[in-house]
């Protein structure tokens, strides 16, 4: 493992473990009152990991789009590799959001799936970025693959906020009663600290993944280059 990614990965992992400790042993439990009974909402603990995962995925998908735009602007191959690596890492985190989201929906609302704006957005995201990989594998020529990949990564990144806003638009859909809100008011002191530590750890860990992926892409390119040298040689 390269030094930079090793340091980032271990720092990220340490922070994530600290996040687990803070979430379970320091942050206060959320309590809801239902019919005069006080219930500890244990499922709320999922929040401390689920939301950092979601935000990390956003960061990397947006980065993928930005690098894609930079590739189109400069035609430098390295930007295209950065875009691809960022989208792939972002996609891993999108998948994680789906897994954890489904589990949370089950724990909080007693159903496996709910057509709720955030979950819907991520389902669309999953499908859209699956399309990104299908598109890349469906183009043979390397330069066209890079071009179309970069273009679609931009379109997809633009579409993310639009999907989210549209999800809240629909007046026809039944509204599920909100069991708890995630608004800032309920997040103070130890809760916020636990959340921020997890958030930061997740970002560091994801960055290390991104560096590894980028190394792999670059090494592959070197191999192609050497192979050509041998053939021409």
């Amino acid at each position: 493992m390269k030094k930079s990614s090793l340091i980032l990965a271990s720092a990220g992992a340490l922070l994530l473990m600290a996040g687990v400790y803070l979430a379970f042993f320091v942050a206060p439990d959320t309590v809801v009152r239902i019919d005069d009974r006080e219930l500890v909402q244990f499922s709320q603990k999922i929040f401390y990991f689920h939301v950092p995962v979601a935000e990390t995925s956003f960061v990397f998908l947006v980065l993928g789009g930005l690098f894609g735009a930079m590739f189109l602007g400069t035609r430098k191959r390295s930007y295209e590799q950065m875009s691809y690596a960022a989208v792939e890492v972002g996609f891993i985190f999108v998948l994680l959001v789906m897994i954890t989201g489904v589990l949370w929906t089950r724990a909080a609302w007693n159903v496996w799936w709910e057509w709720e704006p955030r979950l819907t957005t991520f389902l669309v995201l999953t499908l859209m970025y699956s399309g990104y990989f299908v598109l890349r594998s469906s183009v043979q020529e390397e330069s066209a693959k890079a071009r179309f990949g970069a273009i679609f990564s931009i379109i997809a990144a633009v579409n993310v906020p639009l999907t989210f806003v549209a999800g809240r638009l629909d007046s026809l859909k039944p509204v599920h009663p909100k069991v708890f809100t995630l608004q800032g008011a309920s997040m103070e002191g130890p809760m916020l600290a636990a959340f921020l530590v997890s958030m930061f750890g997740m970002l560091l860990f994801a960055t290390s993944l991104y560096i590894m992926r980028l190394d792999l892409l670059r090494a592959r390119e070197d191999i192609e280059y050497l192979k050509e040298e041998l053939e021409v040689g």
């Binding site: 669309v124 995201l125 499908l127 859209m128 699956s130 399309g131 299908v134 598109l135 469906s138 183009v139 043979q140 066209a144 179309f148 679609f152 379109i155 997809a156 579409n159 639009l162 999907t163 806003v165 549209a166 999800g167 638009l169 629909d170 007046s171 026809l172």
Partner: peptide
């Protein structure tokens, strides 16, 4: 149209991107 799968590719790319508009139009 520039990919190997051509007309199969369009729905895969088009539908997720058009979903926000679809939601608003249906609404």
């Amino acid at each position: 149209i520039n990919t190997k799968t051509r007309d199969l590719m369009l729905p895969i790319l088009f539908m997720p991107v058009i979903i926000p508009l679809l939601i608003a139009a249906v609404s």
